[in-house]
Design a protein around this nucleic acid. Structure first.
Length: 486
RNA sequence: GGUUCCUUGGUCAAGCGGUUAAGACGUCGCCCUCUCACGGCGAAAACAGGAGUUCGAGUCUCCUAGGAACUACCA
């Protein structure tokens, strides 16, 4: 079996779209599953859209995702350079384009914008372009004269107008189009840079890419690329087109959704492993019935033939769930380190933050969930006394004052403010009074937290708060209730 | 408009001619429980429609409908 070589070929124009992340992941998994080579190539042929920071984003994102490349701009594997602008500077693309011209498969085109715009049509509010092969019919002399005069030009592929072209995709099968649908696409732009179409084909061949993994948006143009391969007489790689990832409206996931890029997600408090896991399952499913996979496990089980054809909606809610699963499985110390900033920004009084972290670990899905869960530890929020009314515990504001007043001296005398000791004291009170746990626990919890639900119960909260603050809160609650009931 | 692709519950999806049509998220209910969460158990919820082929179709073919992508000197 030949060595599998796949590549991820982003263009440095901004943040890493989750669709791109998934493409990178699949390309990586396909290679690694077979012990192959994964290559990073930078497609910076569009100077206008190029943003320098994007390079850093690409490296950082791949690293955070754990998707390491074997070859790339920073790791020469003998197929460099791995940046297209550098390859362009070496004249690689022009050399191949000229070969095509010599063969009669491509031609110079001197049409200016004015002429081109006359070929545009607007159908249903959309601009539709087509090129009429005008410059194909230029005589050799005319071409020479134009070139000598320094007239700007592009190089176009001369597509056949009769017959059909078929290409094969592992996911979608055979796709056949009529050749008259094929446009004479531009190979080299007037600034001397290659287009994506051309650079991609040339580089994939030169870098011996065996499996081309890319988004489904290229599916309809794929037959055109086949013509280029054929004109050169090159082997056509295995195509793996991945289905689109869409938003809830089934449109291409865009920046407007607020979570379209890997960086967005990390900023929102998601763990990179969780995002990778989630994105792997967006458009692919394992043979076994299971959801949680580490990257290494994915490498083992990934079978690209199980990639699905239909587009997948990006389910933010499920991502949150999955992130929660990863958080619950985190080693406590690691969790604490990640949670610390959120803990410290909401709690300023002295308290055992590790205990707080422990209470919160099974209750959050992303780290930014922490503050609103524990804000009451810093300060009791303003609350309605109706909170004291609880059907199941059979409590009302009236029963609550009574209980709190009876409990106050108990806790004033209590010296050991550990959870266990406090809970024992409460149990004793409950059994002496002959009531249900909740009858006492509920009002006490409300008194010290001011919230309907809290991470941890009354005694756990009091342990964190300590004696002084706990008593202060109980007294304040009694006052609040008495005033309201008076 | 043209071309291409897609179509199983709200969402991700399994299924590859014979199943009570999995599972997960979400939703709801119950249990556990000092509230909530975790955990456990359970429920509601789907083969877009129509013709064929076949003893038998979610699975194969065709048509219709819906959706999406592409249709750039962007990738």
């Amino acid at each position: 079996m030949t060595n599998i070589r796949t590549r991820f070929a982003p263009s440095p124009t901004g943040r890493m779209h989750v669709g791109n992340l998934r493409t990178a992941l699949y390309a990586y998994l396909i290679a690694k599953h077979e012990g192959g080579t994964f290559i990073l190539r930078i497609e910076d042929t569009d100077q206008e859209r190029f943003v320098p920071e994007a390079l850093g984003i690409i490296y950082r994102s791949l690293e955070e995702a754990g998707i390491g490349h074997d070859e790339g701009p920073d790791k020469d594997g003998g197929y460099g350079p791995y940046v297209q602008s550098e390859r362009q500077a070496q004249g690689i693309y022009m050399k191949y384009a000229k070969q095509l011209i010599d063969q009669g498969d491509a031609y110079y085109c001197f049409c200016d914008e004015e002429r081109l715009s006359k070929l545009k049509k607007v159908i249903n509010g959309k601009e539709v372009h087509f090129y009429d092969k005008h410059c194909l019919h230029l005589s050799k002399e005319e071409v020479e004269a134009n070139l000598a005069a320094g007239k700007p030009y592009v190089i176009r592929m001369n597509m056949p107008t009769e017959g059909t072209t078929t290409f094969h995709d592992v996911i979608y099968g055979d796709i056949t189009v009529n050749n008259d649908e094929l446009e004479d696409l531009i190979l080299i732009k007037s600034d001397g840079f290659p287009t994506y179409n051309f650079a991609n084909v040339v580089d994939d061949h030169l870098m011996k890419i065996t499996h081309v993994v890319r988004g489904n948006e290229y599916l309809s143009s794929a037959p055109k690329y086949n013509r280029i391969y054929e004109a050169f007489g090159w082997d056509i790689p295995v195509y793996v087109h991945c289905p689109l990832i869409t938003d809830e409206n089934h449109n291409k996931l865009s920046k407007r959704s607020g979570h379209s890029s890997f960086e967005d997600l990390l900023e929102q408090g998601f763990l990179p492993e969780a995002v990778v896991n989630f994105v792997a399952l967006c458009g692919w499913s394992p043979e076994e019935d299971r959801e949680i996979y580490s990257l290494d496990e994915l490498v083992k089980v990934f079978d690209y033939r199980r990639i699905s054809k239909s587009p997948a909606v990006f389910d933010y809610t499920k991502l949150r769930w999955m992130n929660g699963e990863y958080i619950k499985k985190m080693d406590f110390d690691a969790f604490y380190e990640k949670a610390k900033p959120f803990l410290e920004s909401t709690i300023h009084r002295s308290m055992d933050l590790k205990k707080v972290a422990g209470m919160v670990q099974s209750r959050i899905e992303i780290f930014p969930d922490i503050p609103e869960l524990i804000d009451f530890l810093e300060e009791v929020p303003d609350y309605e006394i109706e909170l004291y009314r609880n059907k199941k515990s059979k409590t009302t504001p009236e029963t609550s004052v009574e209980v709190l007043k009876e409990l106050l001296p108990v806790f004033e005398q209590q010296e050991d403010y550990s959870n266990d000791a406090l809970f024992a004291a409460l149990k004793q009170y409950v059994s002496e009074k002959g009531c249900k746990n909740g009858y006492a626990m509920w009002p006490l919890r409300i008194a010290v937290s001011g919230k309907q639900s809290t991470p941890g119960g009354a005694s756990e909260i009091m342990e964190l708060l300590g004696k002084e603050e706990s008593l202060k809160r109980i007294r304040a609650a009694i006052r609040k209730l008495e005033e309201a009931l008076a």
